[in-house]
Amino acid sequence: MGRGIVFAGCLVVAMLACLGGTAAATEYVVGDTRGWTVPPNITAAYYVECAAGKTFKGGDTLKFVWNGTHNVANVSKEEYDSCTKVSSVFQGGDPFAFTLPADANGLYYFICTVDSHCENGQKLAITAISPTPTESPNSSASWTAGAGALSMLVLLSSSIVSMLMN
């Protein structure tokens, strides 16, 4: 009977693991080791190069880390292109974390509105992609998989109780 309980416990843990299914969110430090600052050689390509090769998804976090006087504003494409000094900057200091909405899909633009920092290249544009159905906790595919795993867990639990009663 002792081995049966251990076996049943292992099966329950395995079934609970199957109920997961959402991919873990990733935290990205904007600007990598340099952080959020006016890029060297006044090049707008610096943050483009830092973001290249990264896949941004809903739930991911962009961490803006800086020294000195900077801020972060999430802006429209037009404001990004023209480095418009918007008044709605994120407060909260260094570091500042921006988490992409769970349903993020499309372009997101960020600038520093201090002095001429944006004009000197302190701006970031990223493309976020929709999570796949197995990654999205609200998708019907994920719900179906979760419901199936839950049904199996209920069936397994009743089997374990029946086994222990005998």
Rank of each mutant, 00 (worst) to 15 (best):
V6L: 06
A8Q: 01
C10N: 10
V13W: 09
L16A: 14
L19K: 12
G20S: 11
G21K: 06
T26G: 02
T26R: 06
Y28S: 03
Y28Q: 03
Y28V: 06
V29C: 06
V30Q: 06
D32R: 15
G35E: 05
T37P: 02
V38Y: 03
P39G: 01
N41F: 14
T43K: 03
T43A: 01
Y47S: 09
E49D: 10
E49K: 13
A51H: 07
G53P: 04
D60V: 03
T61E: 09
F64L: 05
N67Q: 12
G68T: 02
T69F: 09
S76W: 00
C83A: 07
C83P: 07
F90N: 08
P95H: 02
P95E: 01
F96Y: 09
F98Q: 02
T99F: 04
P101A: 15
A102H: 03
N105W: 08
L107C: 10
L107M: 11
F110A: 01
F110G: 07
C112T: 05
V114S: 04
V114H: 07
D115W: 10
S116T: 14
H117F: 03
E119T: 06
Q122Y: 07
I126L: 06
T127D: 15
I129C: 05
S130E: 11
P131C: 01
P133C: 08
E135S: 09
S136M: 07
N138G: 10
S140T: 09
S140A: 15
W143L: 07
T144A: 15
A147C: 13
A149S: 10
S151P: 00
L153P: 05
V154M: 10
L155A: 13
L155I: 12
S157I: 10
S159R: 12
V161E: 05
L164C: 10
N166C: 04
N166M: 04
